[in-house]
């Protein structure tokens, strides 16, 4: 049932200006990255994959799945359906971002390592997390009773998010082909300023896209629960 504090969804479609702004921001980042950012001398143009690969990875791991875990923990404590919807939405949007990470990574790897894929700790654990989030989505589709569905998926969501610190530390703990962080490290970023501007612009644009997609997905979850309640009333 939708919470009393939320406005009831209507049958009229709504325009979402945030999504439009996010799409324009991402398009501008594409133009800046591909046409106005210098090519790295040793790696060539393939290095530009960083601007979509690393930003999508950062948002998936440290924003989407962190939000999924926090909302899941709070749901188990407070039993508020809004928190379950936030967790569900963050998981699905995070899955889209992780899919981009797993598709763009091999394209970069092929040019630098000479291999599309290697079963090292960073890549394997990221792929494993992707499968866990797919399982989370399947679980949500398989359990009909709302309370049980929310409880089971909250537990799975928390367990899946436990992989995030492992993925982050995997490049330090294991011998891996995946490079160490060049920006998110205690010392100064090892990247020219023009590339840093592109990277941080990309990060902000994709963060905006994440917020817009999360809002759209949350709206769907609210609408679905409202439709289910109305169908029960009609039955």
């Amino acid at each position: 049932m939708t919470s009393a504090s939320e406005p009831l969804p209507t049958a009229r479609p709504r325009r979402d200006p945030l999504l439009g702004v996010a799409i324009v921001a991402v398009a501008l980042v594409y133009v800046r990255a591909l046409a106005f950012t210098p090519i790295e001398a040793r790696q060539g143009a393939a290095q530009k994959i960083l601007y979509i690969h690393a930003t999508s990875a950062f948002i998936a791991l440290y924003v989407a799945f962190a939000l999924m875990a926090i909302a899941s923990i709070l749901y188990l404590w407070l039993k508020d359906e809004k928190l379950d919807r936030v967790a569900e939405s963050a998981a699905e949007v995070g899955l889209a971002f992780t899919t981009v990470v797993l598709l763009t990574g091999p394209l970069w790897g092929k040019t630098i390592w000479g291999a599309w894929w290697t079963w090292d700790a960073r890549l394997t654990s990221t792929l494993f997390l992707w499968f866990l989030i797919v399982a989370y989505s399947l679980l949500r589709g398989a359990v009909e009773e709302r309370g049980r569905r929310a409880r089971y998926s909250a537990v799975l969501g928390i367990l899946a998010a436990l992989l995030v610190p492992f993925i982050h530390l995997s490049v330090y703990l294991f011998r891996t082909l995946h490079p160490m962080p060049i920006l998110l490290k205690p010392s100064a970023p090892s990247m020219p300023s023009e590339m840093q501007v592109t990277f941080f612009s990309a990060f902000l644009a994709f963060l905006l896209l994440f917020a817009a997609l999360l809002r759209a997905r949350y709206r769907i979850a609210t609408l679905r629960d409202h439709v289910a309640s109305r169908e029960q009333e009609h039955a």
Partner: peptide
Amino acid sequence: TPDNGAFATAAYVLAALV
């Protein structure tokens, strides 16, 4: 500098498609 612009373009196109 290696000539691998096609890989970058493919990655950007794939991301846009997803």
